[in-house]
Nucleic acid binder design. Sequence first.
DNA 1: AACACCCTAC
Length: 447
Amino acid sequence: MTQFPYSSAAMTRNSTTPMTSNSVTFASVDDALDSFNRMLQMNPRPSGVKFGQLVSSLVRMKAFQAAFYASKRMELAGVPHDRYTLGLMLRCFCKLGRVDFGYSVLSKAQKLGIQFDDVMLSTLIDGLCKVGKVIEAARLVHKIRILGYQPDVFTYTIIIDGLCKAGQTSAGLELLKNMKEFGCQPDVFAYNSLIYGLCISSRINEAMELFNKMVDKKIMPDTFTYNILVDAFCKEGNVLGAKVILKMMIQRGLLPDNVTYNSLMNGYCLRNELDKARKLFDFIDNRGCKPDVVGYNILMDRLWKAGREKEAREIFSRLSRDNCLQPNILTYNIAINGLCHHGFVDEAYDLFRKMEANSCLPDSSSYNVIIHGFLHHKDPLEAINLIHEMVSKGFSADLTTMSLLIELLPKNQLDHPIVQKLLNGPNIKSHEIVSSDLSAAATQGTC
DNA sequence: AACACCCTAC
């Protein structure tokens, strides 16, 4: 095992990936940032390549905000960007939903005389799709083709995925034909995107046809393919269909994973078979393939909804006791919602306030859930304060929350100054606030 | 160095 030389914390290379000179893995985001801070203080400073490796490790941990900051600090410290670090920065912006800054990375590359490549363009196209700008993304593909870039199987798959998620599955199927005509062979990724698109548009029969077609073409379905189909059958309440797919999956030599089990558990719950769902949960637990956070979330939510309070609470505390698992934001939102619906609003509020300390910042859903709790069961005036707090943090109260507030608030409170402000003042869109720091960096002309 | 699946609020 090779040690990254700037780290005091224990650090491992990912044993499942080949050991390459530019891949380095940290145990946690904090470890990576500690290492980064040490590197910045060193004299002489480590090479740009080492900084690039570090930023890359943050990106692989999906710590995009941290990766962006690191990359920015590296730049301010005078370490020059190269094609690699600019590509990472672009990826961070796109993953954070800031394609606008993504474009500025490209112009920055141009200014620095760094030629951007197909990978960077594909990253940008994916960023556009992910913020719902599929048409702009498709136009960009057209434009780059004119400029002489050849879209490859990645680029096409990104657009197909974007079209499917925008509800344009038929256009996605059309693009599958077109890419073949352009000499680009679709792979398992492209088929998975389309099968997923057909499933979420309730076209499960066509999804199965496409599945058979890909097998005919000797493109081997993988775990993702089977998971998509298992989930689709489960959501239809057709657990028998789901089991057929599961059997096919196992016959192919693929093992069901947490995603498969979670979908099945969800399927049983939707059929009101909560006790198979529980059995399945315990079955996974006894198999060495532990339930993951999502599994806990699904089961806890369905138990709350079935009014099985004691069991729902037990699932939550079991998750909190598990050393390997961390409740995520959805865990809290589900628990808060369940508590509120059963009248435990004070307890829900305590949990809401504990989120931050447990390194889970409340999001707009957390606020909406607790505010609904207050509106329904307790004190509409307290709800006003919370709405004010959420808006001041840059989240928007959703329409349901606002209309519920107006409905439930005593008439003599409607002219409450905070209420008037909420009703008249423009709410700040969350995405404009979440990355206000990114905006600051952008307006300084540095990115 | 770019792409895919499972969980919340009405």
